[in-house]
Write a protein that binds this DNA or RNA. Sequence first.
DNA 1: AATGTAATTGCAACAATGTTGCACTAAAGA
DNA 2: TCTTTAGTGCAACATTGTTGCAATTACATT
Lengths: 125, 125
Amino acid sequence: MKQGRNTTAKTEILKLINQSDVALSHAEIQLSLEGLCDRVTIYRVLDRLTEEGRIHRIVNIDGGVKYASCTGCSAVHQHSHIHFSCQKCKSVTCMEGIEPAFSLPAAYQISEVNFTVSGLCPQCA
Amino acid sequence: MKQGRNTTAKTEILKLINQSDVALSHAEIQLSLEGLCDRVTIYRVLDRLTEEGRIHRIVNIDGGVKYASCTGCSAVHQHSHIHFSCQKCKSVTCMEGIEPAFSLPAAYQISEVNFTVSGLCPQCA
DNA sequence: AATGTAATTGCAACAATGTTGCACTAAAGA
DNA sequence: TCTTTAGTGCAACATTGTTGCAATTACATT
Ligand SMILES: [Mn+2]
Ligand SMILES: [Mn+2]
Ligand SMILES: [Zn+2]
Ligand SMILES: [Zn+2]
């Protein structure tokens, strides 16, 4: 969880993600950035920000990847909340605080969770 | 949910998936098939089988896609069970019967769910 | 069993997404 | 300011999935 260098690309990408109320894909970020940096750099910055615990990676129900800010990750860095994926407007939203309850046989060692619910968001329903 | 034609490719692919105790990826299926048909055909057969409700599609925690048979989908075709993804042996297993409990605000219309738990499976732990 | 038709297939071409190697650039500690 | 090395751009590549179209084949009907 050590901090890396603060570059223009990193600053701008983090700002974009933090200011958005929905999760953003690499493609969406690249569009917003308007050529500020190379697409490879965006991939690397997203990896780094995830590594540093500033953002978290979301695998959507269609397999696409999006990134969202890490609000409420003050003490422990954990993301077991639900992500809602709207089939109409394609938005992916972090349902902060809503965590599913489940239990697996003790033989399974859990280290990560990805829970996506898909359907229609309040705006599209 | 109507049945399509029964071709060699469809029969073999379904057999592979049904006989496997873990979910299979397109690449794994193509390997097992040893050139029985084109890779495009595999994609199309997998789509068709999913459409027909014979198998179900699993989006893994890393974004990869796998397919598993539909056991226990007798009456209603539903797949809200958990999928366990082992970080070591890379296997994805359907945890039949284990469904997470959660609740979203009423404004959200739910139609599909994908829940993946990642960690170490009993064999690898 | 032979026939007709539409579903299915193979192939080539394309698109989207992500990764890697390497030379060059620049952040930040000394 | 200098030095070190993390970060970047670019080109090249890999993987995964999609599409159009002509050729094939399952199977319902004769
Ligand atoms: Mn989230
Ligand atoms: Mn399953
Ligand atoms: Zn929506
Ligand atoms: Zn394992």
